[in-house]
Amino acid sequence: MVGNESEKGDAMKLVAVTACPTGIAHTYMAAEQLEKTAKKHGHAIKVETQGSMGIENELTQEEIDGADLAIFAVGIPVRNIERFAKIRVLEMPVQDAIKNPESIFAKLG
């Protein structure tokens, strides 16, 4: 299932974390935007939200280790960040993920 990384534009396996200061809205908007855009580009993605309802859709170590890349769309420090010690992380402000998701995926190549 793992995509072929050598080929530009090929399907990737992504994990992501979204989090914002109040955890009420932007966390979820960013998650939705990442899921929507990843799907459009044919990538597989699982997004963990760290918001007012706590950690949801939590990423397991296995899932993280098996992914090609982690995306942090956050306005506050990521909780349990040690899980991501071994993976390449692309970090950006949460509002960038909401407003310009395409630019993130453009960078993936």
Partner: peptide, 23 residues
């Protein structure tokens, strides 16, 4: 949201609303 808000029902609805606003 009330500072003392307990129960996630409202938060879930709001999270859902936030997700839909992306579309």
């Amino acid at each position: 949201i009330a500072a003392s808000a307990k129960g996630d029902e409202h938060l879930k609805i709001i999270a859902g609303l936030a997700r839909r606003l992306v579309h």
